[in-house]
Amino acid sequence: MAKRLLLEDQISRNKRNTVIICALMFILLFGVISVMGYIWFGEPLYATVIGIPIALVYILMSYRFSVEAVIKASGARPVDLSVRQEKLLDNKVEELCIASGLPKPRVYIQDTQDINAFATGKKPENSVVCVTMGALEKLTGEELEGVLAHELAHIQNRDVLLATVTIGVVGSIALISEILLRSFLWGGGSSREGKHIYLILLGILFAILAPIFAHMTHLAISRKREYLADASGAHMTRNPGGLASALEKIQKSVPVKPKGSKTVASLYISNPFSRSKKSSFWSTHPPTDERIERLRNM
């Protein structure tokens, strides 16, 4: 990817890709439901009665996962405005919010030496930006600004909401496939006779593969949104170099496992649980080198 892309083009391209991948995910969900319908009732559309409620419940369940829960799990604390360094951080966040027209999120600090940051909140009015002490101490003003803008861009692009919904869809695809496979094991399905054996085998294969694909599409969305947040963050600060050099620093630093569960890994600016340089279908973030290159080319 040596091609030079305009910032606006990067933004719109990443948005379009997200829509395509999301559509793919819903097709997958619809596919599992249809297979279930065909195998159980001999009619693909019949199973929507069971499938759609399952999916809805799952999405609602993942929707309930709240800002407070994430903050609590990460062990972060609110900024202390009487400390100059933290007051300056709070100022920076407020400045960038003015640049983007966002309401100011609450600012939290995680007391760890790792350089990292994350944002959470399903809507801009109630969201949190959290920065590690390491980032506050080791990054220069411009670098910190780049990192904060990236996080605010996640809030502006409603990435947490998107992730919540996709996690819900992935979960329901997994659950429906599981039910299907179990029903095969126990010989469920009242009217098996009269159906083509190959079609049934194909259905089983689909039920096995669908959850894997679903998980992969979820991760692909997560990676696209990282690029998008990098680009919209750069638009906010008008300075892509700041974030690029912050990412270089992060790459060189030794990662320290943060408190909190792996489920929030995709929220961080750089995945704190794995910092491999290779891109793979299993990463929540795009490779850092590629991100730096794109920022440098803006």
Binding site: K87, L88, E94, E95, I98, A99, S100
Partner: peptide, 21 residues
């Protein structure tokens, strides 16, 4: 003085960013 200086710096940045917006 330090506090005033910080305060003026951040308002200066805010002016710049609000103009950008």
């Amino acid at each position: 003085f330090l506090q005033l200086q910080d305060e003026l710096t951040t308002t200066e940045n805010k002016v710049a960013y609000s103009r950008q917006h």
